[in-house]
Design a binder for these strands. Structure first.
Length: 426
RNA sequence: GGAUAGGUGGGUGAGUGGCUGAAACCACCGGUUUGCUAAACCGACGCACGGGUAACCCUGUGCCCCGGGUUCGAAUCCCGGCCUAUCCGCCA
């Protein structure tokens, strides 16, 4: 969530940001309500603090008087303290109320888009930051979509997944399974080469972790929940990896922190059935290598560019047609300040598939995480967090299958040969 | 799953209900000394939210796992919860 301090001090910028996210004037009114509630909170706190200070002072006096054996005087003071106590109880209740109201309102405010984020309402308004200029793979008329190719070459089996688990849980087999493993290893190696520390985190997290990265309470229904133990299956490695630095105060020399992790990702995707979800386009379990960075506020946007270049490098090595989108205010995620999406051209489906999303969250995430660092003056300050997929496996596989299909089988990009052990999937 | 022990500042670890936001030691940071490193010595050394017009600074409140309670006063006593460790059982 946004910091209260920022909303108060930079109200104009925040309001402008909300407009970029297409908030109406009526919706934006909540900003003033927040400031008003905070004013009330502050004055109530002052009142409460003063009362408690007085009560503390009297308690000390009573102790002293008792020591001197002046029992009567002490008794008189006790009555006073009792009175203060009832008053402070009431104020405490009011404080808690105000605090809750404030938090509730704060949770409704999305991150403020960076000034370079374009205006817009729908995905059509996203700015193409880099377009694919070379011709798309030239496929024959009888080219198959990846779900057909999967059957033909026994890459993965969705029906079998239904038997074992349910819809949206693919079973990869043979060379398909090997390809999956090859991609994971390739992505991890690339990240490690780029200076990211490899992490293999738990795939289940507790409520605190889910809350700190904002999956709770906002996206409760998106996660699989093991109620017996109150643990959640991670929807992305971002959750456990980012929580590594939860409640930390880092020193300058700890920055930047660069971590990468492969994990399976579990998403309920409730209510998203229908068109465009065939095959691997949208599944409940998929593999992903994530990159996460913690940065000094002055460095975060440079870091964002670095991450974009990293993902782009992977795309190139995989020889896949891709484009990079700079998301507009209306299409950007709630917690992001600036997001680039990577899309890969799926030749047989003739559409772009999102395979990576790289975002800078500024302090929006670190505020909930309580992730701070000690700055040049020794003051604690919220750090900036960023993350991105590098990459999401399932859709990359879909694109690889479709774009590289030949009569002899699926051509494997050169860079993967040493991982797959074969050059053609057939 | 059963039994026991325990949760204090970055770490180790003390703490008779008031003089304890918390001893001591270590680490970190600043300084002095030093040819370098090391050592020694000195000093500072928690977080959050308020107030004093902003900064340096001064000051109030809260926080010794979390939430309640007892008390004029709780890290300290009582109740509930959570977590961790060890042993037993089960087990890849």
């Amino acid at each position: 969530m946004l910091q209260l301090k920022v909303i108060r001090e930079e109200k104009k910028r925040i309001v402008a940001g909300l407009r970029k996210r297409n908030w109406t004037t009526a919706q934006i009114r909540v900003v003033d309500q927040i400031i008003k509630a905070d004013d009330a909170r502050r004055s109530t706190q002052k009142e409460l603090d003063d009362m408690l200070a007085e009560s503390n002072r009297l308690a000390k006096q009573i102790g002293a008087l008792m020591g001197q054996g002046k029992k009567d005087e002490a008794e008189a003071l006790k009555a006073q303290v009792a009175q203060l106590k009832t008053g402070s109880k009431e104020l405490e209740d009011r404080m808690e109320n105000l605090r809750n109201q404030l938090d509730e309102m704060l949770y409704t405010i999305p991150n403020c888009p960076h000034k370079s984020v374009p205006k817009g309402k729908t995905p059509e308004d996203n700015k193409v930051a880099k377009d694919w200029t070379k011709p798309f793979p030239n496929l024959p008329d009888d080219a198959l979509p990846h779900w057909e190719l999967a059957k033909k070459y026994n890459v993965f089996d969705l029906e079998l997944g239904v038997k074992l688990t349910g819809a949206g849980f693919p079973v990869y087999r043979g060379k398909g399974a090997r390809l999956q493993r090859a991609l994971i290893q390739f992505f991890l190696d690339e990240a490690v080469k780029a200076g990211y520390e490899e992490i293999l985190p738990p795939h289940l997290v507790n409520e605190d972790s889910a809350r700190a990265t904002g999956q709770l309470p906002d996206k409760e229904g998106q996660m699989y929940h093991c109620t017996v133990d109150n643990l959640y299956l991670i929807p992305t490695a971002e959750v456990p990896v980012t929580n590594i630095v939860r409640d930390e105060i880092l020193s300058l020399k700890d920055l930047p922190i660069k971590m990468t992790a492969y994990t399976p990702c579990f998403r309920r995707e409730a209510g998203s059935y229908g068109a465009h979800v065939r095959g691997l386009n949208r599944v409940h379990q998929f593999d992903k290598v994530e990159i996460v960075r913690v940065e000094h506020p002055n460095e975060s946007y440079k870091a964002l560019q670095g991450m974009v270049r990293h993902v782009e490098g992977i795309m190139r090595k995989l020889e896949l047609p891709y484009r990079i989108l700079l998301l507009c205010g209306g299409d950007m995620g709630f917690v992001s300040a600036k997001t680039y999406d990577f899309e890969v051209w799926s030749a047989a489906q003739k559409r772009w598939l999102e395979v990576s999303s790289v975002s800078c969250f500024e302090t929006y995430q670190s505020n909930r995480l309580k992730l701070r660092f000690r700055d040049e003056n020794g003051k604690t300050e919220l750090a900036h967090t960023l993350n991105g997929s590098a990459m999401a496996l399932a859709r990359i596989v879909a694109a690889l299958l479709e774009n590289n299909q030949t009569p002899e089988g699926i051509k494997i990009p050169k860079v993967l040969w040493k991982y797959t052990g074969f050059k053609t999937l057939n």
